[in-house]
Design a protein around this nucleic acid. Structure first.
Lengths: 149, 149
DNA sequence: TATTGTTATACTCTATAACTATA
DNA sequence: TATAGTTATAGAGTATAACAATA
């Protein structure tokens, strides 16, 4: 049969689809964990970013947590109302607002840290620790190469 | 300082976050491509799955395209209305409905295949073809290990 | 009784543009 | 003029449960 049209790669060899499928595989137990405290994936990412980098402006959070600024505005408002973080105007540039975790925010993270680590450790045992490391390295490099040219 | 609470991995070493960030990096040019024909990421995944596996029941599509069945129902209805696919009741099990691409659906894929491949090729050149292969292999294995045990 | 898919509902996130205030 | 963040709005996806048809 004469096949004229260009052929796409199989979905298993499509990077965006493979990344999504792999993520869905990994997210299962984490979703269960988060569901228990009624916190969304997006809020959990924001919490982790804040925990990692400390007080920071919103554009940086949006980039690190893969959220658009309008989404982030809404999420931060809700989380501030719930007492997990505070926003204050930056001293040197009053357009910026700096976001910072409260003690309650840090406590929320702490409550989940152990289980989160256990989930990751279990995955490493099943999938292979070396492979996880290799995979994370490649993902980092891929992300970095996206910023180039 | 005495740090008592358990520590989380950095977000760069969190598999779900790293997978998401990498995906966002890769999706940029693809989103631009799809935006031109007003087709969502989710619809594009459905098209590719159907193109790859042929006529198939909806549960299988949902799994392969990482969509919940209620979402898929709505998406398929819209795509059927647009003439890209048809649904027919399975002969041997009348609970199932088999979904199949129409000629218009295949044409839609064909219109994007060349550009989609070009985007992927460009990424391979920048990031390294070997690394892409290695990454896809690892993602496949990860996905497979999720089904185990 | 279990499974396949649909419908209903409430919620959340996405995407874009317009806007405010600061620089 | 440009940037940081907010607000508005429309649209789409997520998640859960309840349901109909079929097995």
């Amino acid at each position: 049969m004469s096949e004229e049209r260009p052929t796409l790669r199989t979905t298993a060899r499509s990077l965006p689809i493979a990344l999504l499928r792999a993520r869905e595989t990994v997210m299962g137990p984490i979703r269960e964990m988060l569901a228990k405290s009624g916190i969304s994936e997006q809020k959990w990412r924001v919490l982790r970013v804040l925990d990692e980098v400390g007080p920071v402006e919103q554009t940086a959070i949006a980039d690190a947590a893969c959220l658009l600024l309008p989404s982030l505005t809404r999420i931060l408002s809700a989380m501030e109302k719930d007492g997990y973080l505070v926003r204050r105007t930056d001293d040197t540039d009053r357009r910026k607002s700096i976001v910072e975790l409260t003690e309650a925010g840090r406590a929320l993270i702490a409550r989940h840290a152990e289980e989160s680590n256990a989930i990751m450790t279990r995955l490493e045992r099943r999938f292979g620790e070396g492979k996880v490391t290799k995979l994370l390295d490649l993902l980092d490099e891929l992300r970095a190469s996206g910023s180039e040219r």
